[in-house]
Amino acid sequence: MITLENVVKKYNGNVVLAIDNLTFQQGDIVGVVGNNGAGKTTMFSAILDLIQLSEGHIENNQQRVNESEEWKKFTSSYLDEKFLIDYLTPDEYFNLVGSLKGYAPGDIQEFIAGFSEFFNGEIDNKRKYIRSLSKGNQQKIGIVASLIGNPQIVLLDEPFSNLDPTSQYRLRQIIKDFQQQNNCTFLISSHDLNHVAEACTRIVILEKGKVVDDVKTSDETMLRLENYFAI
């Protein structure tokens, strides 16, 4: 579905991303791991055409992301709180995202109700703007909004951070279930090796902008990850 070809991103001459060839297939749950500065967020931003590449190109469903905007119809993402409109209430935000996908408010409410366990009753209060909610709850809103409207590709940047342990486990389950139901592709970056090894079917390790490892998840994956990241 997504292909990165000879992708290079430089900032003031420093190469922050250099990927020769990387393809994500339909149905993959890809975990992107790497230390700070490895280029995870840069890669996601490039796939979403939020930054311009210095060289190379990225294709989403056979179309270059910087030339066609078709990908916006089936690609959803939540990278950080810049993806939230914080003066809306959660419901208004969900309805807005839903209406962009052509859904009526009623359908959206039904869809959101399926996540009531994940929200844990904390965003049901309709009289609060997103900006006055806690970081964790804001993140939950962003993640759930990215699942609205049958997306074929979902990009989540560090979805497990800021969440309490129970919510982390729930999110893991949500991602797996959602993938099963829709056969969509997930790209997830995370610092939490445990969750990545458990939830993802494929793991890509980035270091200084380069892919240093790319494996299908198996029983040894966790060990491999620990070996790689331990000092």
Partner: peptide, 12 residues
């Protein structure tokens, strides 16, 4: 503040 949101959604 949320320009990335507007640019990644099919916002019209």
């Amino acid at each position: 503040k949320y320009y990335p949101f507007l640019m990644t959604r099919d916002f019209g």
